[in-house]
């Protein structure tokens, strides 16, 4: 188990006019190798939640355990925050807004430097990280980050996190504000990272079509609580409840449901486009086999799939 969260609660602005409960008794276990998608309406508490995972917010109630580091509201013992931030990488929304150095190299090296590594190690990690995010190390290392394109800037920012070699990577709306091409690149980057570098990934997204493409598990936040943490197929049967929370079900599931209403049942788990595509091909093929078998009975529906 990488991350265990127990009875976590958090309130903003206690005692002021702006008091707001952001987290209410959250319990969650994230296992090694999980690809967790967190969805929820604006203000449901998901951003506050992930900020707890690398100690940016101190728990007010309850506890967060990340590997062997325990975070509670107690003053002592002090958790080793530097080590924590090295093992949990956090990519914020619009991470390109955090770039500040004069060259891409220096900016990516900022994290590893803070971890207290030596120059040689830093150089190796920076090179590796820049190449991992799909940029040409020799070409970009001396350029100013501000003269890169939007998608490139974002990849540099992500490289800055990866260079710290985290064991868990958390991304908040990683594809927000990019064009379809940039989006596609960031998404394939995340899948690549999961495979090669960082086995446990948590992604916040509001695009359910996007997140179901790679997440192995979906956690739904609603009004400061975890509303659902159940297998995806079961989750998407609750269309009404999700709509009430301001969330959508994947287009693939909608198509499956619509087809079912017309009398065409598809087999297997369907949560994203790929599943749907396969299921439709399977259904089509089996239909053809059926039709060939009982060719003399054309009156059984005649659906074109």
């Amino acid at each position: 188990m990488s991350i265990v969260v127990k009875n976590l609660s958090f309130t903003y602005g206690t005692g002021t006019a702006y008091q707001k409960k952001a987290l209410d008794d959250i319990n969650l276990v994230i296992n090694e190798g999980d690809f967790v998608g967190i969805v929820g309406h604006t203000g449901s508490g998901k951003s506050t939640f992930i900020q707890h995972l690398n100690g940016l917010i101190k728990p007010q109630e309850g506890e967060v355990q990340v590997f062997d580091i325990l975070l509670t509201n107690a003053k002592k013992p002090k958790p080793d925050l530097r080590r924590l931030r090295g093992s949990v990488g956090m990519v914020f929304q619009y991470p390109e807004y955090q770039l500040f150095e004069e060259s891409v190299y220096k900016d990516v090296a900022f994290g590893p430097k803070n971890l207290g590594l030596n120059d040689e190690e830093i150089k190796e990690r920076v090179k590796e990280a820049i190449e991992l995010v799909g940029l040409d190390y020799e070409k970009v290392k001396d350029r100013a980050p501000f003269e890169l394109s939007g998608g490139q800037k974002r990849r540099v920012a992500i490289a800055g996190i990866i260079a710290m070699r985290p064991k868990v990577l958390i991304l908040d709306e990683p594809s927000a504000g990019l064009d379809p091409y940039g989006k596609e690149q960031i998404l394939s980057l995340i899948t690549r990272l999961k495979k090669d570098v960082c086995p446990t990934i948590v992604v916040i997204s509001h695009d359910i079509d996007e997140i179901t493409r790679f997440a192995s598990r979906i956690v739904v936040f609603n009004e400061s609580k975890i509303a659902y943490d159940i297998p995806m197929e079961e989750l998407f049967e609750k269309e009404e409840e999700l709509t009430a929370m301001g969330l959508d079900i994947p287009t693939a599931v909608k198509i499956k449901n619509d087809l079912a209403k017309k009398g065409i049942g598809l087999q297997g788990q369907i949560v994203n486009e790929n599943d749907l595509e396969k299921a439709i091909i399977n259904a089509y093929n089996s239909k053809r086999v059926d039709k060939n078998a009982i060719d003399d009975n054309p009156g059984d529906g005649g659906e074109e799939v």
Partner: peptide, 13 residues
């Protein structure tokens, strides 16, 4: 606040 958080997440002290 946001930028401070982001830099802290990168180990800034």
């Amino acid at each position: 606040d946001k930028i401070m958080m982001a830099q802290k997440a990168r180990g800034a002290n």
